[in-house]
Design a protein around this nucleic acid. Sequence first.
DNA 1: AAGTGGTCTAGACCACAGA
DNA 2: CTGTGGTCTAGACCACTTT
Lengths: 232, 232
Amino acid sequence: MASPKHERLREVLLAEVRRLQPHDMLPTERELAATHGVSRATIRQALDHLGDLGLVYRIQGAGTFVHGTSYSKTLLLTSFSEDVRDRGMEPSSRLLAIAEEPAGDELATELDITPGDPVTTIRRLRLADGQPMCLETVRIASAKVPELDEKDVTGSLYEILEGRYGVRLTRADQLVRAVALDNKDAAALEVAPGSPAFAIHRVALDERDRPIECSDSIYRADLYDMRFTIRR
Amino acid sequence: MASPKHERLREVLLAEVRRLQPHDMLPTERELAATHGVSRATIRQALDHLGDLGLVYRIQGAGTFVHGTSYSKTLLLTSFSEDVRDRGMEPSSRLLAIAEEPAGDELATELDITPGDPVTTIRRLRLADGQPMCLETVRIASAKVPELDEKDVTGSLYEILEGRYGVRLTRADQLVRAVALDNKDAAALEVAPGSPAFAIHRVALDERDRPIECSDSIYRADLYDMRFTIRR
DNA sequence: AAGTGGTCTAGACCACAGA
DNA sequence: CTGTGGTCTAGACCACTTT
């Protein structure tokens, strides 16, 4: 739990926001502070958070207002499982391969380990409501996930990392490309060769900025798109 | 000018960060406050900003540290011109069409105007270092850009919106898809039909959350990719 | 135990919007 | 002019990491 007062406030303000219509003005910061019996700085912190979530916007001299509808969320680091559930579908997984191999130079650099160190590679077909959606190859330094085995990789790897190994991924660098599927990938994803797809290369880091996981994913473009809000 | 002290501090801290190596620890907040003759709250605000930019990370009880290299920036709202310059290339533009037409229902909804209201549509081929990179169709309610004409649309529309009309775009909702180019678009972009591309639908809003611009862009995937950092 | 960032207070003044 | 959000101060205590 990060902060008791802070968290409670967030919830309360969130409920308050949900009761309002887009472009409605929230009570002033001073009012909110008085109403909730906290200092204005605390209210501001909570409102900052709502702002980060894209729920409210502020105009100096005028007030704080509720955002109109939108894709709302800024791009967030999510696991495939979370992502699919957010889209209202049920994620599942088919393990294609799991192996341990020594790291090559490039991979070693990305994972910040020594070339030759053992790396566990997991290759999975990931499905949404039973439909093949994504081909995913994840690589993790074996030292970071001792005793990981086949039974563990049917669901969210992120949950296992956090639950069993205490590793929290907090940040990831992504390179997203649009590609045409080659014959092999197309067959695995059950679409025609040459179909459009997203190819995503991702390096995920923990809260101490240490690279943990390096993945390459290929998403069927007919089933997957990216929606997000960006800011100035 | 947002805030004099704040801005100066940012610069100073930024310089400080640049002198350090990844994972080096910054001076403590209390030290920084003393050194720069400001309160700790002010230092924290500046460090928060560096955190948002992805330059530093903090660990409670331990310190504030410099981030390792990465794609660094979170996805930002940029114009094509800025974007291309960031990639070290020179943007240019070829006007394909500019016209004024009444808004259809769907477009009217997106731009929050009345169906039938005049909308200016600008269709451009956008190039990077002289190579066709993107086909872009922008639509703006004509009322928001009176007297806009052909001469104005050779460069960054965002600059014109801000400079001439005082409209600042601060937020945009994007829908990104991977597609295969049809014959017409492929010809315009000078690649083979069926080549992979990004199709981006964007609605950009001003600081008061009013939709200003609605655009559809098609980017050649062989020349364009998306790099960004995401967080938990 | 000492030192760090995280939260919070109670006030002050500034910059800006709007009637 | 009044009221709003934006910045800032000088303190306090809490939660956590590290030694």
